[in-house]
Design a protein around this nucleic acid. Structure first.
Lengths: 336, 336
DNA sequence: GTGCTAAATTGTAGCGCTCCAAAATGCCAG
DNA sequence: CTGGCATTTTGGAGCGCTACAATTTAGCAC
């Protein structure tokens, strides 16, 4: 396959052209729209390409065409594993088309987001995926095709929005617990967008069932927040038999409280989380959780991106991806 | 700061040159080695740059200089959070120098690693960091400056190796438990490189203390492996009072076994993990763990990389980073 | 074979920057 | 003021590719 590459300069389209007996332009054309070239020449060029081990220079292509074939993905925090699924989903459709995804971690706080975005834009990405809170300055457009993933406070003008149906997922969690006979159900919620939607869905179904709403709302969605929320809930409503945490990490905080109070899961209290993270899948927790199918979000994001690169003027769309409930051992029929 | 950028073409060095009343070459020089330019011109050029909002085109720079100012980072699996610290460490030194790190996930299995590497090399990265098992084909050199991070089966010719002192860390864990009076200490180990070193360090200290070695070695290092290993250990040596898991995930598997057997942590059995992952830090587990300081590895990797880009011929080096023991609530003085 | 149109192929001018040799300038001793 | 040398600045030739106009070739009806 790859010949020896000691000091021999990497081959260019000129080398390929000479080898195949055609003009450099034709080689370029074969690379871009092979269907426009006659069978005979196309085959000759492709043979020359593989014989010489030719690889186009991205830099030259980018310079000449003003397109980098790369997509910027802006995330809040690498530790948030949901981005892995998002990324995988995106790459599953983009990499075959020659696109490369570049990550930038904007870490919450000040203008790190702006910096990260600038960094990404400096790389001249063809499009931008925002999986973080957009900064003020980007709300009036980023200058490149943009898709927002997840619930955010604002969406830049002209950008698409693709997100999970957290509202529906919250409803699923509520209905699951209601279906198991629970009527004293506490909910640990955070202040961010996804939490708000999960809470709204939860509230809707709980109310529809004529059951009392028991909600602890905290600033963040960390394990610590879950711990504090669960403490407060159990202090105030000791008869709680089930807890719906806005994510798996908060559920872990709840576990810590339950353990401290000597309450057993699920015999005394059922617990359901959200995200279907590795934590939930672990044998120790084996947590029932709502999977928001971020991989599907990634796939959808990629398709939307491609459409928008093709025609930047298309009408921005808003898409919801349906979550799925994953049953495990932390929820059971009510016994009290 | 950034002027309106409606339809106006991005400024080039020619625009900057005209604006500052110098030649384009001088602008280029200011960008590369400002110290070689007279104060007067340098200031004029810099003023013009910020006035016009000029940003160099990476594509053009790459094409003309044959350097992309980007580093490829090849990892096994995005879910392995240690790469986050590695990446952060690397970026803390590289981004100020204008380098951009590109990630490629090679996922274990067949030639995915080769594909990922090819993809990275196709992007013409200036250097490569391998934080995954290298494929056969790269062992005789990758063609670019290369640094290997972590323990691997093989290291490409001419590549540096920077890794954690897992041997020392294993010893730390052993000595911590011995110091608490434990003499029946089980160790959950895996088959990979890091595990082998942690095990070796553990073994050395345990032997030095004249205590019996109780080791369960499994194929992988997953929670499931930890579960199986801990089951086997406790079945065979019911008098065990402490467990050292080769990583935090395996420790979680051990927790599951202990819970099932009604054993309390740390009153009945002390548990110590490795990696100081978010899991260990969580309030629910609050796991004593060895932190291998992957951020320091990242910083060191970056420095080595820069040195090797500077002069590819320098002698390959091997560096060990010292870990640190983080005490939490899962280890206590022996009571049985 | 001729004339015409459509399809296939080629020539050429950049894209925005770096690099290096050549030219211009500055500085100092004599 | 001059020559000689170091320092600063400039001109211009690429880097490898694309885009588009210009040219050649193919295909077909008459």
């Amino acid at each position: 396959m790859s010949a020896t590459r000691p000091k021999t300069r990497r081959p260019t389209i000129y080398d390929v052209a000479k080898h195949a007996g055609v003009s450099p332009s034709l080689v370029s054309l074969v690379l871009q729209s092979p269907e426009r070239v006659s069978d005979k020449r196309r085959e000759a060029v492709q043979a020359a390409i593989s014989e010489l081990g030719y690889r186009p220079s991205r830099a030259a292509t980018a310079l000449a065409s003003n397109r980098t074939k790369s997509i910027g993905l802006l995330i809040d925090d690498y530790r948030n594993l949901w981005f892995v699924d998002l990324l995988r989903g995106m790459e599953s459709v983009l990499s075959d088309l020659g696109y490369h995804v570049m990550l930038a971690d904007s870490r919450p706080g000040e203008n790190r987001i702006k910096d990260a975005t600038d960094g990404l834009l400096a790389l001249h990405v063809d499009a931008l995926v925002i999986a973080a809170e957009p900064s003020e300055s980007m709300l009036d457009g980023t200058g490149v095709p943009t898709v927002v993933a997840g619930w955010r406070k604002g969406v830049p003008i002209g950008a698409d929005l693709i997100t999970n149906d957290d509202d529906g997922g919250g409803g699923m969690a509520a209905n699951h617990l209601l279906g198991l006979g629970h009527t004293r159900i506490g909910h640990l919620s955070g202040a961010d967008g996804a939490s708000a939607h999960r809470r709204a869905g939860f509230r809707r179904e709980i109310r529809a069932a004529g059951v009392e709403l028991l909600i602890a709302e905290s600033q963040g969605t960390s394990e610590e927040d879950g711990y504090a929320g669960a403490s407060w809930l159990l202090e105030r409503y000791p008869d709680i038999t089930a807890i719906f945490a806005a994510n798996d990490t908060m559920a872990m905080g709840a576990f810590a409280v339950l353990k401290a109070r000597g309450l057993r899961v699920p015999s005394d209290v059922s617990v359901i989380g959200y995200d279907n993270s590795p934590l939930a899948k672990s044998r120790y927790l084996d947590l029932t959780s709502v999977d928001n199918r971020s991989d599907l979000v990634g796939i959808d994001v990629a398709h939307r991106l491609l459409a928008r690169i093709e025609d930047p003027a298309i009408e921005p769309q808003k898409t919801l991806i349906e979550p799925v409930l994953v049953l495990r051992s932390t929820t059971a029929r009510v016994t009290r």
